[in-house]
């Protein structure tokens, strides 16, 4: 079985600050990490690899050369191979252009039964790339997966809703997007870190190598135009903290809400 996991290297937003003038992330000096949901995606693939024989896990990413560190980390966690799509032609890609590039990377890899993505990246929060890849490839997708089971030739997944979940079955190949409830990712192994940095299990490919559609990648291939980034001004209003133990606070809250005719 061949599994492809798409990962993104992102700035650790726990340590990130926003430029108050430009409204953009200050990336300088901020450590880069594998996007957390993508780690859950990878972990799920690795669990399948632990459980079944002849499972190959390939990790795919698009980004600058330094994103190789993310692939090394994935290999140190147990992935077999890594592919980094790195090319100036990819620079400035929005989600459409990114999914176009990643889909080209997946076609280049060829055989696949399962594709895992994280639900969304912490630096963009769009949750679009995974579903778009499935559309590009013309395969089914199950998003927001918190539990996954492999059946004969198909998968059964629990897809999370706000107040419940669907149980969905789909034929393979299928694309899954993972949420953090899916599993607890393992750590990279120390031995794996050395193996990963040997470099022989990571390929760096250009747009031409994977025959990505030039009109649909990079800044020019991106339909999204960012005109301005800014922090919305906080709305004014009265904030009042209720006092007392939780029961008293709840009682007081209900009284207030009734006064305001909200309930």
């Amino acid at each position: 079985m061949n599994i492809i996991v798409c990962i993104k290297q992102v700035p650790d937003t726990n340590e990130v600050r926003i430029d108050p003038v430009k409204g953009t992330l200050i990336r300088e000096g901020v450590p880069s990490i594998i996007n957390p949901d993508d780690k859950n995606a990878l972990e799920e693939a690795l669990r399948i690899k632990d459980k079944y024989e002849d499972v190959k896990v390939t990790v795919l990413s698009m980004g600058p050369y330094q994103a190789e560190d993310a692939l090394v980390e994935a290999i140190a966690m147990g992935a077999d191979e890594g592919i980094l799509l790195s090319d100036r032609a990819f620079a400035g890609s929005d989600t459409w252009a990114t999914s176009t590039a990643l889909a080209a990377g997946i076609r280049y890899i060829g055989d696949y039964d399962l594709i895992f993505c994280g639900r969304q990246a912490i630096d963009g929060d769009t949750a679009q790339v995974g579903p778009q890849i499935a559309e590009h490839l013309g395969i089914p997708q199950i998003t927001y997966v918190k539990e996954l089971e492999l059946l004969d030739g198909k998968v059964r997944a629990k897809r999370v809703l706000e107040d419940g979940y669907y149980v969905i079955e789909a034929e393979m190949p299928v694309l899954i997007t993972a949420i953090k409830e899916l599993n607890e990712p393992r750590y990279p192994s120390i031995k794996g870190i050395y193996e990963g940095y040997k470099g022989d299990r990571i390929k760096i490919l250009s747009a031409k190598d994977v025959e990505a559609d030039e009109d649909n990648i990079g800044l020019d291939g991106s339909p999204t135009q960012v005109n301005k980034s800014f922090t919305p001004p906080t709305k004014g209003g009265n904030l009042e903290m209720l006092e007392g133990d939780p029961k008293e606070q709840a009682r007081e809250l209900i009284v207030r809400l009734k006064e305001e005719k909200i309930i």
Binding site: D69, V72, E73, Y187, I193, Y197
Partner: peptide, 13 residues
């Protein structure tokens, strides 16, 4: 790079 990543992993662990 290896030592840096090992530090990160060890710290998290």
């Amino acid at each position: 790079k290896e030592q840096e990543m090992i530090r990160t992993v060890m710290r998290e662990f």
